[in-house]
């Protein structure tokens, strides 16, 4: 009689924690937290036989040549260069604020939000040796991308008073039209001579 009056015994939930722990530990082990990040690039399309005359059409003043040799040293526009000053030089080249003769020409273009705006015909050419270290190569790429990003940032602040990241999509496009990212990754040359 006394047994009957008792309520149904509760299911023992003590082992529930163990089961949950087991699953938790599995997911802890299987988790990789790192987010994949990197420098995004577009490769030029493959041409079976490159047309040599095309290079001649681009004027010397419009190209910013960066060479990296097998000892990881830089040659920027035919002089020894340094990674620390590379960004500054690239920025000056891309924007050409003083409209100098030896820096890229500008072309008046209709850009939304800006109206007629002089857009420079800049191209950065990055060439490397087969023995250049990958580390150096990414450092240089990073500096060149940083130059573009900083110029875009400055323009966005000056025109819209907002950082580039926060701009709406069409205003971003306009800023990108003014400073298009043109980094050409040419085929490597054996500058050092050794394979």
């Amino acid at each position: 009689m006394s047994r009957r009056s008792k309520s149904v015994p509760e299911v023992n939930a003590g082992s529930m924690a163990d089961i949950a722990f087991l699953l938790l530990i599995f997911f802890l082990v299987a988790t990789t937290m790192d987010v994949d990040t990197g420098l995004g690039r577009m490769l030029p399309p493959w041409m079976p036989d490159p047309i040599d005359n095309q290079d001649d059409k681009i004027k010397e003043r419009n190209i910013f040549v960066v060479l990296i040799n097998s000892q990881d040293r830089l040659l920027v526009e035919n002089e020894w260069g340094d990674v620390r000053t590379l960004k500054k030089r690239a920025k000056e080249f891309i924007a050409n604020p003083g409209n100098k003769e030896n820096l890229p020409e500008k072309n008046m273009e209709e850009v939304p939000y800006f109206g007629q705006y002089p857009v420079s015909k800049q191209i950065i050419s990055l060439q490397n040796d087969r023995s250049t270290s990958y580390n150096m190569y990414t450092i240089v790429q990073n500096e060149l991308v940083a130059a573009y990003n900083e110029l875009r940032e400055e323009l966005a602040m000056q025109k819209f008073g907002m950082p580039f990241d926060k701009l709406p999509e069409d205003q971003k496009k306009a800023v990108q039209t003014i400073y298009p990212q043109r980094i050409s990754e040419a085929e490597p040359k054996n500058i050092g001579g050794n394979k």
Binding site: T37, G40, M42, P44, R130, S133, Y134, N135, T138, P188
Partner: peptide, 28 residues
């Protein structure tokens, strides 16, 4: 790997261009 020489990377880039896989990302 950061100590790799560019030669092998260039070969891969060339292969990717041939097959028209142009969008790449240097993981950093």
């Amino acid at each position: 790997d950061q100590e790799t020489k560019m030669g092998i990377v260039t070969d891969i880039k060339l292969e990717l261009r041939k097959i028209n896989a142009l969008k790449i990302n240097y993981s950093t």
